[in-house]
Design a binder for these strands. Structure first.
Lengths: 117, 117
DNA sequence: GTAACGTACAACCACATGGTTGTAAATAGC
DNA sequence: GCTATTTACAACCATGTGGTTGTACGTTAC
């Protein structure tokens, strides 16, 4: 599990987060478990693939910190982790800020350029 | 190339965007080309891998709409696409909103519950 | 014109990924 | 206690991914 909630993320952690989000089934699992927790077998019932396949998808999401799993009797209850979503948002924000800064530099360049002649 | 800039994204398009972001070299290419455009060979010079490997990474990013390429003489100039970043941000926002709505429902439930006895 | 540069693309390889089936173990229900 | 349910996990398979090298082609510079 990922412990860092405020610190920088390693490349591997970022890889896992985006990799986990790069599959429609996994995104749907995130969506469902953010809306309300669900057992692995409840999730498996929602998709036309084997239980084991869904189990693997949940494991990938858990490895990325996008969901957490806790035991309840013989079930494992899966819950979406909004913190991981926010971490990903901050990453994308950083990229947009790089672009915004570039535009800012261009604007400053234009402003600072005195009229020619 | 992706034409949809305001419309809904298909699952495949979303897959490609997150897949493209799930690699540290590709994220670095996005970072560099958002800060300022660069030719493929300039990019290739920045990494300890073959030109062809970097070329493939650029192709993956282009397929996801995260960068665009335009010819300039014998070079191909790569430029980061801030719109694609914003599309990804909107996707993550939607997931966070699902969670926010769930918490809102829980709060409303608590507020609406009359004191017992 | 020729040589160097920048790119494109195919072929190949090792390994990861997304799916399957099968087996085993823990828990719940009767 | 027995049976059904739920999960875990291994083994396997087809395909995708990230890297390589090699070859070909357009463009630039001299």
């Amino acid at each position: 599990m990922v412990v860092n909630s405020s610190a920088e993320l390693t490349d591997d952690e970022v890889d896992r987060i985006f990799r986990a989000l790069a599959d429609a089934t996994r995104r749907d699992i995130v969506r469902r478990t953010l809306a309300g927790e669900a057992s692995v077998s409840e999730l498996a019932g929602a998709y036309s693939m084997s239980f084991a396949a869904v189990q693997k998808h949940v494991a990938v999401l858990e490895g990325a910190g996008l969901v957490t799993k806790r035991p309840r009797g013989r079930e494992r209850v899966v819950r979406g982790n909004p913190d991981a979503i926010r971490r990903a948002q901050r990453l994308l924000d950083a990229y947009e800020q790089i672009w915004v800064a570039r535009i800012g530099r261009l604007d400053a360049l234009l402003d600072d350029t005195p009229p020619q002649q």
